[in-house]
Amino acid sequence: MKAAVLVFPGSNREGDVAQAIELVTGRRPAMVWHGDGDFETTDLIVVPGGFSYGDYLRCGAMAAQSPVMAEVRRRAARGVPVLGICNGFQIVTEAGLLPGVLMRNAHLKFVCSDVHLKVETSQSLFTNRYQAGQVIRVPVAHAEGNYFADAETLKRLEDRGQVAFRYCAPDGTVDGSGNPNGSINNIAGIFNETKTVLGLMPHPENAVEPMFGGSDGKGLFEGMVEALS
């Protein structure tokens, strides 16, 4: 699997995701600077976490307008898989690749903590290594992860199985106790209609080694390798 990781001014988890990809594929992904409107063809484009453009204006809003994102939109339309994590989720949402919006956490504070996620489907190139209903433990680290969509959009997402992950309790119960940010329907991550774009707030890239936060996130990268190699 050949991957490209985008780098914006203020990105800061690009190294973490590159490390996770390298751990799984044995191959360092290409790091692509935001000003590059054209970059080499890859099997996967990753929009990493961080504070692109300082989160000024609105998280992800400025990065969504950069030359590299115009190219990402073109490639996504052709079916190239795109993974947006945390600030990357905010960016791909601002860029119109996914519906909805990420608002300030309900408690108004930044939150860094392990959370439990319920995997909603194994039927995607991102989640094929997990079982539907499986509970995994990965960290979150964000101040604006409170996913919201209007009732109509939400119904469409739910009806078409576009919810990828939901926050849950350790036993898999989906209720307020496991939700770190107040997101609607406990949504932690969503797909586009073709399930070739995944945006999620949690950081599977920080859960790939047992000594350093557990390895429940590794399946996401292994699944992509299986689907895209």
């Binding site: 930044f110 860094c112 936060g213």
Partner: peptide, 14 residues
């Protein structure tokens, strides 16, 4: 306090 600090970024916190 410390949950408001990102203590996991870089993936090296043991």
């Amino acid at each position: 306090i410390w949950k408001q600090y990102d203590h996991l970024i870089m993936g090296n916190t043991a």
